[in-house]
Design a protein around this nucleic acid. Structure first.
Length: 427
RNA sequence: GGACAGGUGGCAGAGCGGUCGAAUGCGCUGGUUUCGAAAACCAGUGUACCCUCCCGGGUACCGUGGGUUCGAAUCCCACCCUGUCCGCCA
């Protein structure tokens, strides 16, 4: 949620920011609506003050015992009707404005490159080189089933299209990565959480998934609960409606959760195998920090995420998203992309963003500033990392001519020393 | 799921329908005292929005939402949450 006072002070800055995102927001109408709400509020509150005074007078008169008591009550009643009407009008206008604000995206930071879509994103760093093969590298959706570590057909039997199963060393490899990620985060000072995978609508609103992106969420038919699309949602909202002790900042949290996404409208595009599925595992990092250090903290977080890819020896790059490609709640986003030799393309395995105070306003997450007054925190989050695409890159990068796949040395301790995945007898 | 009990300020804990944003205690902050500390004493100590040049003023918030009333922390209804017991269950 944007800061209405800031908007009022410099509406043109917001207009520019929204234009950069490719949105034409009627700034004048918004200003007018804001002014109207405040006028209605003032009127309702003034009437309420009069009514309160009248009521107090009646209380005093009743104790004193006066003849004019009934007349005073009648006057108060009339005033009350008037006040009630004014207050209803005020409430309706406030609700409408608030609802409208929920649909306005976060302005991007000035450093974010202007652009329309992903074609305008800026590559800011590349690590390594694409692996070379003495044979034609195959995609994971061929390698996986052949090695007996992925099974897409049976997943479709269970849940329809867009799901995957991992089998044997595939499942174990995924679990090894999760453990390695979390162990590393904890060593880096993150606190690990285990959180609900089902949350209330208000929680989804706090991080910005609702109300605008309801069609991307799985919902329960008989309960007011939604499946999380990322651990960002429960982790960030852990501190909703709280005032944090500044001595604790920055708070660094991480969690492993499955992520559930309907992917409405994404059918057909890069959806083979594990590339884009309705349910996938992810380890997520979430920071609560101060406005002053948020941007620097984002770089630190990106460093934490890229470190894994380097350790795994996977060719990867860092991309700064342009204004048109930056997500609704984010102010600045860097994607980490890993190279898929099997498809000769980049796969996003992490997205690290600062949300400035946008989520903090929605979720009401504050801390005590130097003056002792509550201020909104800045929230950051990033994948660290998303599992399926790491598996894709690992399998495709380390595939051998004989169809086996080598395990990078860093992961071997998490796999009981296993160095290689060879085709296994399947049942 | 059923039966009880309860949800009040950072915590504990009062609160006859009117002067309650709310007693009291603790905690916290500042001060006095002290060589210093403790103790004691004094003062202060919620959040949000609105009006105002300042001083200051107004409104709202006692789980949430409705209702009754001139007036609700106090009465009524619904819901949510917590605790205890029962049932069911990994």
């Amino acid at each position: 949620m944007i800061d209405l006072a800031a908007f009022r002070a410099d509406p043109e800055a917001f207009r520019r920011a929204w234009t950069a995102r490719g949105l034409a927001i009627d700034v004048e109408a918004l200003l007018a609506e804001d002014a109207r709400v405040r006028a209605l509020k003032h009127r309702a509150e003034t009437l309420k003050a009069e009514l309160n005074a009248a009521s107090r007078a009646i209380g005093a008169a009743a104790r004193a015992g006066g003849a004019a008591l009934e007349e005073a009550k009648a006057r108060a009643r009339a005033l009350g009707d008037q006040q009630k009407a004014a207050d209803d009008e005020r409430a309706a206008a406030e609700r409408a404005l608030h609802e409208r604000l929920l649909y306005l995206p976060n302005p991007c930071l000035p450093e974010v490159p202007l652009g329309k879509d992903s074609a305008d994103n800026r590559v800011v760093g590349v690590w390594g080189e694409p692996p070379r093969f003495a044979f034609a590298p195959r995609p994971h959706w061929e390698l996986g089933p052949q090695l007996g570590i992925m099974d897409f057909e049976r997943a479709a039997k269970l849940a329809g299209s867009g799901f995957a199963t991992l089998r044997g060393l595939g499942a174990r490899l995924s679990r090894a990565l999760i453990n390695w990620f979390i162990d590393t985060h904890v060593a880096n000072g993150y606190t690990e959480w285990s959180v609900p995978h089902l949350v209330l609508p208000a929680i989804m609103q706090g991080t910005g998934q609702l109300p605008k992106f309801a069609d991307q969420l799985y919902r329960c038919r008989d309960d007011e609960l939604l499946l999380i699309p990322t651990a960002e949602v429960p982790l960030t909202n852990l501190h909703a409606d709280e005032i944090l002790d500044p001595a604790l900042l920055p708070l660094r949290y991480c969690a492993y959760t499955p992520c559930y996404r309907r992917e409405a409208g994404a059918a057909g595009v890069g959806t083979r195998g594990l590339t884009r599925v309705h349910q996938f595992d992810k380890v997520e990092m979430v920071w609560f920090t101060t406005p002053e250090r948020a941007r620097a903290d984002l770089d630190t977080m990106i460093g934490h995420a890229t470190w894994f890819l380097s350790e795994l020896g996977l060719h990867h790059r860092v991309v700064q998203l342009c204004t048109g490609d930056t997500g609704f709640s984010a102010a600045c986003t860097f994607d980490l992309e890993v190279w898929s030799p099997g498809t000769q393309s980049w796969l996003e395995v992490s997205s690290c963003s600062t949300f400035t105070d946008f989520q903090a306003r929605r979720a009401n997450i504050r801390y005590r500033g130097p003056d002792g007054k509550p201020r909104f925190v800045h929230t950051l989050n990033g994948s660290g990392l998303a599992l399926p695409r790491c598996l894709i890159a690992l399998v495709e990068t380390y595939q051998q001519g004989d169809g086996s796949v080598l395990i990078p040395p860093v992961l071997r301790p998490y796999l009981g020393g296993c160095e290689r995945i060879a085709p296994a007898r399947q049942g």
